[in-house]
Design a binder for these strands. Structure first.
Lengths: 161, 161
DNA sequence: CCGCTGGCTTAGGGTTCTCATAGTCAGCAC
DNA sequence: GTGCTGACTATGAGAACCCTAAGCCAGCGG
């Protein structure tokens, strides 16, 4: 019996032994955000944190690590560093999400939902609610025709074009 | 002007400086799968890989690393190790996805989609298609009422109960 | 111009992750 | 009983990641 959780390889991708995942974009993404500190800094950015010290304290990492990770995330274009000045205050810096960084949100939600389900006995400490209707937010896979999809119902194909 | 990509903290979670993300399930998830090799092994498991040597070669990691990571993933319950015997063959082992491991699929798809969009000039090497209808598979956030949701439209609340 | 605060950087050291190379062990094949 | 294959384990070493503690610098406040 085959495992019903695996995807089905099609066309030139079958069998798996016949190709290498050279341009794999999962691997490329992990080059950018495979560290715990990077993803937790992104979490804080979504919570609205913008200042250096706050990132270090709220993520629970040391300042040298915060500095290194923030620098990398700015270099990679997930955050941007801006100067700003409130009236009567000196110039400060803040780190803000770029479109590229904001687009990582589904990854964090997927991680959170998985942790809520499998790693916390009470289903996780916080919940996400749609502001307009107050209903809980879920992460899901669906096809362009609108059907909900699970891993066992997926064909993998080399991209045409 | 505030950043429209951040979520809105509500109730006891506002302001952010007033609480610590102690039971954060993103952090807990990362304790399990924050290494590149762990997530790429999970990728291979979804591609149908089951054997030790294949994991090492297809992920592109050394055998000692494959051994360490597979052991951890089995300990954490994402994979299970089974003996099996084909007729006339000696007993072999295989690693298969558990329900807990299979449930991680949205995380991998979210990472892949993000990489497709931001890290590959051709939109990624492979695509996922819904077997029933042939349409591309997307990862999305939606509320229980069915609305599509973005990070700027989300309220975060402490879980009741 | 002294001190304080925010935003870092430097120095030194520990643990984890990774590699390459080599070795072990069980069980068929012959 | 020798060889081969699959599934590891052992060893040693480099890189990545993280820590604590301390220092630096700019620019207000007084």
């Amino acid at each position: 019996m085959t495992n019903t959780s695996t995807v089905r390889l099609t066309g030139a991708l079958e069998p798996r032994s016949g190709w290498k995942a050279e341009r794999c974009t999962i691997a490329k993404s992990l080059e950018v955000v495979s560290t715990r500190s990077a993803l937790l800094i992104m979490r804080e950015a979504f919570y609205g944190t913008t200042r250096f010290d706050d990132f270090a304290e709220r993520v629970g990492i040391s300042e040298p690590v915060a500095a290194a990770r923030l620098r990398e995330l700015v270099e990679e274009g997930l955050l941007e560093r801006e100067d700003y000045r409130e009236p009567g205050q000196r110039t400060r810096q803040q780190y803000r999400l770029t479109a590229k960084g904001a687009d990582l949100f589904p990854v964090l939600v997927a991680l959170m939902k998985w942790g809520d389900r499998w790693l916390d006995d009470r289903g996780g400490p916080i919940e996400l609610l749609h502001r307009d209707c107050g209903e809980p937010v879920e992460v899901s896979l669906h096809c362009a025709a609108g059907h909900e999809v699970h891993s066992g119902e997926i064909d993998v194909a080399r991209r045409r074009r």
